[in-house]
């Protein structure tokens, strides 16, 4: 299910012009990271994918559906969106009910719902917390509940808005594992992140936004190697990329193995 964005513009009621003509195509099954300065329009952009925001002009087409003509409820069968702050999306009395809410509303059979919920809970390591109230969990685990509740909807496209914020190393590893599993299943994963090392290690394509426009778009290594351009949108290259540059390596390196090969 492709995402086609043509000359997308959006202005908030306050007069703030957040998106100033975005053109993008994201193919089915791609793993894309969106990076950029605070206020660059990252969240505003992805909120157009599931119809929470509608274009002021231009269009967003999700697998042939023009989001301007479809409700958020309808688009929810194609696009799952995990909010930046889990507290904005959790409301059930226990984790199991929360995770089941999405698939139940999509009208799947009982067997399919059970299977999807079971898989999502296992993937996010929530099995021992099924009966706990989400608000009795730490913010870390609330984040995992938010992830599970969206994964259980089995949408072709999954969006994560800053999934690693405030997470420790172990949990960042869990989130990376979830993304890898979704990739295996052929899902499109779009992730907003400020964690550039995480971005380098888990995504193949990076889009850098700046002041409501696409600044850079391409293969992770190509985009994250462009230190001066990235600085325009307050992004640093990954740590190993900076190290490689300082050591005078010819190729841009972003991950540990590439770095090792380059210095051996």
């Amino acid at each position: 299910m492709n995402i086609n964005i043509k000359d997308l513009r959006f202005t908030y009621p306050t007069g703030l012009e957040a998106l100033k003509g975005i053109n993008l195509t994201i193919d089915s099954g791609e793993q894309v990271a969106i990076v950029g300065q605070n206020g660059a329009g990252k969240t505003t952009l992805v909120r157009h994918f599931n119809g929470l925001l509608k274009p002021a002009s231009g269009s967003v087409i999700i697998g042939g559906w023009d989001t301007a003509k479809y409700s958020v409820a309808k688009l929810a069968s194609r696009v799952g969106y995990v909010f930046q702050n889990p507290d904005e999306q959790l409301f059930s009395r226990d984790v199991l009910t929360e995770v089941s809410f999405g698939p139940r509303n999509l009208g799947y059979s009982k067997e399919k719902i059970d299977e999807l919920v079971k898989r999502a809970m296992a993937l996010t390591e929530l099995n021992d917390k099924a009966e706990t109230n989400p608000y009795d969990l730490s913010p870390t685990w609330r984040k995992m509940v938010a992830l599970a509740s969206i994964i259980a909807m089995d949408t072709s496209i999954v969006i994560f808005d800053e999934p690693t914020t405030g997470q420790d190393a172990v949990n960042v590893g869990r989130i990376a594992h979830v993304i890898a599993e979704l990739k295996k299943e052929g899902k499109t994963v779009i992730t907003i992140t400020h964690d550039i090392d995480f971005c380098a290690e888990n995504f193949e394509r990076v889009i850098a936004l700046s002041k409501g426009q696409v600044l850079l778009d391409g293969h992770t290594r190509e985009v994250l190697g462009q230190e001066e351009t990235l600085a325009q949108t307050y992004v640093d290259p990954p740590q190993l990329t900076r190290l490689g540059k300082r050591l005078g390596l010819k190729e841009t390196v972003t991950r540990q193995e590439e770095f090792m090969q380059a210095i051996t």
Binding site: D168, A169, V170, V172, D197, P238, Q239, L240, L243, Q256, F259, M260, I263, T264
Partner: peptide, 20 residues
């Protein structure tokens, strides 16, 4: 103990094992 480290630290630790 499950703490995160900088990529410089983790990469150098790995490089140390390989004599680099």
């Amino acid at each position: 103990n499950g703490f995160g480290v900088s990529r410089y630290t983790s990469t150098a630790r790995e490089a140390k094992k390989r004599g680099l």
